[in-house]
Design a protein around this nucleic acid. Sequence first.
DNA 1: TTTCTTTGTTGCATAGTTGCGCAACAATGC
DNA 2: GCATTGTTGCGCAACTATGCAACAAAGAAA
Lengths: 110, 110
Amino acid sequence: MHYEELKARARVMKALSSPVRLKIVEELGKGERCICELQPLFRMNKSTLSRHVAALRNVGIVGERREGVKCMLRLLTPCVLNVFECAMGVIRAEARRQTKLVAGRHVAKP
Amino acid sequence: MHYEELKARARVMKALSSPVRLKIVEELGKGERCICELQPLFRMNKSTLSRHVAALRNVGIVGERREGVKCMLRLLTPCVLNVFECAMGVIRAEARRQTKLVAGRHVAKP
DNA sequence: TTTCTTTGTTGCATAGTTGCGCAACAATGC
DNA sequence: GCATTGTTGCGCAACTATGCAACAAAGAAA
């Protein structure tokens, strides 16, 4: 695969690599929201939240629609919600692996 | 969702947010590889490559099996390959959007 | 119209994180 | 001992997240 394509994919993944942005995506999965509706979910400066939203917009995960003074956000590609499934798969598999390690520790080589 | 879970997901996504690591994952999608087989695909110091692999191992995407002096790597959760599909969906949608913007530029407000 | 409020963005400074090569090291096998 | 394979400590450059303050845009109120 071309390196440019890998970089494009990496940019999308990077936009999803922050718990704050994942929470935004999760919330937008329920429907349109403006930033002022998202704000109470986080305790951070509105400028910081605005920048997180911008990161999601810049890669095309989130789109916006002006409505008066508000700016309604929505998921442009809801398939990102599926990505969560995979992430959970990785986390669960890792948890199982850790559990096994702990259980088998008393027979492991010293 | 609990913030701890969001952080766990974000860690997985972060491991996938580098073109180098995506290329490693892509290569391991074809089968087991040792780092020395991956090395010719990149022109970077082996220590750097080792750290990229470690990042994938730390979150449980990649596992290893010693074989003599080599260390065979494999995907523990091949579902990460599906994630690429979604990333491509985002990229394609964004490309379409950009195309539309360019096409419609001559009627946009100045 | 002018002023005020709400909503969101942007410049700046700071603290923290990441990616990288180099060099040294450990482990395995010849 | 020596070669191969991979990991780790260190320092540096580049990037990221954050809050603060100032700003812009749209509408409401005076």
